[in-house]
Amino acid sequence: MSKLLLILLLFMGTTVVNAHPSYGIAVDDEGAIYFADIIHNGRGSVWKLTSEGNLELLLSNFHAHNLILTANQELITAQGEEWHTLLRLKPNGIKDTLYHTANFREFNGGNYTFTSTGNIVFGIDNFLWVINSEGKKRKLSDHMFGWNQIIHAHENGYIYATDIGDSTGKIYQIDQAGKALVYAAGLLTHLPRGYDKHQDVLLGMTSDGNGNLYVAETAGQRIIKILTDGSHETFYRSKDDYFPTGLDFSNNQTYILEFKMKGGNAGPRITRVDSAGGRKVVFDFETHHKKVSPIVAPNTPNSGTFLWVLGMVLIMVIGVIVFLKMKLHAPAT
């Protein structure tokens, strides 16, 4: 019985702890910063930090990992838990549902991007898929990924997708014909504790307008810059036990979304890096929450996670009972 109990506890604990944080961040033409956050407000939040420093809650109890700001300043984001809904938030406040399903294999709101031509690209079951503006779905490429978590639609028309399946960390470039090539490799930092496939991951990707690609890497607590020839270098490294999850560029400045998981969750915070490398924390949720009237309840339980944990406890109890009954009725030897 002790072995069965241990296995169930380990399975439940590992699954709950290992959800990676949000990585979506975007800066609009007026200097407002939009970012995703799955720590606060039930399943999570989508926030807007105005250029004056005012924090606005755009979506509550909404489990968004990513968000994308289009050329016409429309915000695209998706719920990626239980139900998978892709939303468009227009500058005038109107919200449109672009896609909705309860079947994550039909559309996975936890791993997607939105192209400049209006196509939805998402990853599930080791492949990338595309849904066009008419709602028709097809496989983007025949390339089979080991473990893809992040997709980026580049302005050059290529799709870039991470793969951490072999524990080295690769980014693939997929052209419009579906041909996939390794664009960069050897991106994951290997720590002395050994590789953890749930914690040592590649997260948010973006580009700088000069053809260079950037990706967040959690184990090394850094942003990696990938040059046009596929070589790479460390562009930024977080401090104080934080790690970067995503970034965006605006007016020759870089805005980096960061979280902390050591000694308890903290964040999000946003660090701005100027062209000379100077850093400034322009937003820290913990500090901001203490200074102003709260528009969020940090201790509000995540209803979806709570019900899931409750279900797992019930399964564990039932499993123990069944095990005991089987042992009780087993023939003597």
Rank of each mutant, 00 (worst) to 15 (best):
W129L: 10
L247S: 09
K3C: 00
N103H: 00
N251E: 11
R279L: 08
G13L: 00
K90P: 05
L324D: 11
W147A: 15
N210A: 11
R138C: 10
R88H: 00
T85A: 06
T333Q: 03
T77H: 00
L328F: 09
E106N: 14
G319P: 04
D163I: 15
E56N: 12
L58D: 09
I223L: 13
G135C: 10
P21N: 06
K262M: 13
G169D: 06
T228Y: 09
N92A: 10
F306K: 05
G53T: 15
D200P: 07
R272I: 14
K197E: 12
L67M: 12
D241H: 10
L213A: 01
D96E: 13
I224W: 02
T287V: 14
M261H: 10
N252Y: 05
G31K: 13
H289P: 10
G319Y: 01
K48P: 06
I223Y: 03
A78G: 14
D37S: 14
N41G: 07
S231I: 14
T254Y: 01
E217C: 08
T101Q: 04
A153K: 00
E106G: 10
F107W: 04
I224Y: 01
D163C: 08
R272Y: 03
A32P: 02
F11W: 00
N18C: 10
T50G: 04
P21A: 06
M205G: 12
L87I: 15
M326S: 08
F235E: 15
K291V: 15
Y99S: 05
I224F: 03
A216Y: 07
N54Q: 12
